[in-house]
Nucleic acid binder design. Sequence first.
DNA 1: ATATTTCCTATCAATTTAGTAGGAATTAAA
DNA 2: TTTAATTCCTACTAAATTGATAGGAAATAT
Lengths: 141, 141
Amino acid sequence: MISKKSKYAIHALVHLFKNATSENPIPTHTIAEETHVPVKFLETILRELKQAGVTASKKGKDGGYFLQKPAQEIHIAEILRVLDGPIALIPCVSYRYYQKCDECVNEATCGVKRAFLDIRAQTVELMKNYTLDKLIDSPPL
Amino acid sequence: MISKKSKYAIHALVHLFKNATSENPIPTHTIAEETHVPVKFLETILRELKQAGVTASKKGKDGGYFLQKPAQEIHIAEILRVLDGPIALIPCVSYRYYQKCDECVNEATCGVKRAFLDIRAQTVELMKNYTLDKLIDSPPL
DNA sequence: ATATTTCCTATCAATTTAGTAGGAATTAAA
DNA sequence: TTTAATTCCTACTAAATTGATAGGAAATAT
């Protein structure tokens, strides 16, 4: 399971994609109401995403948030990495957060590592495919 | 990331596959030494796996654990489900542990749900492929 | 009998998760 | 120049989860 933080973030970002522009930023409380996310929590989420280069903001009255880059360049893998950390399922197959596992004797030949390396690679490919623009709701019947 | 519990379990199960039979069960402390897992922790893990139908045991002297079914029928998805819960990344796309998400207005058309449904399905396929027999170490050069 | 094992229940410390509180700084507009 | 609305920042906290450990009861081979 991903954290609620990440789930909230994804919904919020889709909302920004649909409604916000740099000329028309959306304030946190509006997004919070629409997506049913606690407003103070969402505030910290959007700020974290800003620091990671995903969202941008305008301060003061009539301020709010918008996307810092095209929705086609923001995907689920990136969002999860920012808020939940590595995609890898075990530390020894993470690129950025690599940590040795004590369980395998020889990392070069470890079968468990080999499997999880493959799983990570394929999962990342899967998640990279889901960019924000592919997450909008289907048209109702 | 998966829990250490699950990671330990996978290594232990591979060890059982390589070394144990119903006539030659392996005691917990032996597996613990070989796989560098705390023995008391491993004890509870192997018992949980037994209750889930993955391992079997023989009590008393010369007792220990062995696999309850062929290694080709035990895969990573099953192990993770037993010890870590659902494979699904958000509650509303889990089959066994379904829970409604408050963020989407209409579950039938929710784009986020659609994406994570696909991700879950593909991840399960991936993980089902990795049965215990495919997790043995590659031959050293 | 004895040694060795699984089995069971309970407990625990550390970490992570999911927030909340309170206010400073910034900005648009009246 | 005041006011309202917003982002931004730091700190705090309660609850849940994780990663174990403790102490022994029950079973079994020799």
